[in-house]
């Protein structure tokens, strides 16, 4: 730690920010983090809603089994998951290349490595999102859908105009969680699978901080990053909370 910087005046404090922005790769890592969030939204919002809607057509034991299977990756420790994916993605004897008939070096090439991080992170969190959507759907009073159906609405109309609006608080919640936590979900995977590489292709802001700041126990840089995170994510989160208050219907 830097004792000199502890009693820093304004200029001294500003220096931490200057150093943060001057980190090699800072801008690019912010961009990659945003991309990661966008790429994960299908896994945390779209697919879970689809699964939740489909699951209503399936009853009994089968539904329980499907839910258990989709939920199971969430139970796997990220580091254990990273280990098995490293094994699955092995260029020579990995199952992925054998099934696809490819010879891609998944974790050593920029594009494939980014795709791998997104898919493995998505695999991990899908079950959580499915569970949250299931809870949201279960909380919706069936009388509304029944009433709409009595009024002659088709299945799709009921879904579009009754179910989804009532589900919107859940969806906003999932979007919020995705924005705030994507980079943290993928962090253990990046650390174990790619180490931020190849040539920085999977370095998110979080990994950059870990790599530069905390590798050297640099408190000033970390604090500056903390403030930036707080402001950046704060704006996004406040926007989403405001949105959720506007679109929410509470049927109580």
């Amino acid at each position: 730690m830097e004792p000199a910087a502890d009693h820093a005046d304004g200029a001294g404090r500003a220096r931490h920010y200057a150093r943060l922005f001057a980190l090699p790769d800072f801008g690019a890592s912010v961009g990659r983090t945003v991309l990661l969030v966008l790429a994960l939204l299908p896994f945390t919002v779209a697919v879970p809603v689809l699964v939740g809607l489909l699951a209503r057509r399936v009853r009994g034991r089968a539904a329980v089994v499907y839910q258990a299977l989709v939920f199971s990756p969430l139970l796997i420790a990220p580091v254990a998951g990273a280990a098995v994916w490293q094994w699955l993605l092995d260029p020579r004897s990995g199952a992925v290349n054998q099934v696809l008939g490819t010879t891609t070096n998944w974790l050593q090439e920029p594009g494939p490595a980014q795709l791998a991080i997104v898919v493995v992170t998505g695999w991990h969190v899908l079950g959580f999102a499915v569970l949250v959507v299931a809870a949201g759907l279960a909380g919706i009073d069936r009388d509304y859908a029944a009433a709409a159906a009595l009024d002659g609405a088709s299945r799709w109309q009921v879904t579009r105009w009754v179910t989804l609006p009532l589900l919107s608080p859940t969806l906003v919640f999932l979007a919020l969680v995705t924005v705030l936590l994507s980079a943290q979900w993928s962090f253990p995977l990046v650390d174990t699978l790619t180490g931020g590489g190849p040539s920085g292709a999977t370095t998110t802001v979080h990994y950059l901080l870990w790599d530069y700041g905390f590798g050297s126990f640099d408190a000033g840089l970390g604090a500056a990053a903390g403030v930036i995170f707080f402001l950046g994510f704060g704006v996004v989160a406040a926007g989403l909370v405001a949105l959720s208050d506007r679109v929410s219907f509470h049927d109580s």
């Binding site: 697919v47 699964v51 489909l54 089968a62 499907y66 299977l69 989709v70 990756p73 098995v84 094994w87």
Partner: peptide
């Protein structure tokens, strides 16, 4: 659809 997705999700755990 659900069965396929379930198998896809569980396969890495089976392979482990």
């Amino acid at each position: 659809a659900l069965g396929g997705l379930g198998v896809l999700c569980a396969f890495p755990i089976y392979w482990l």
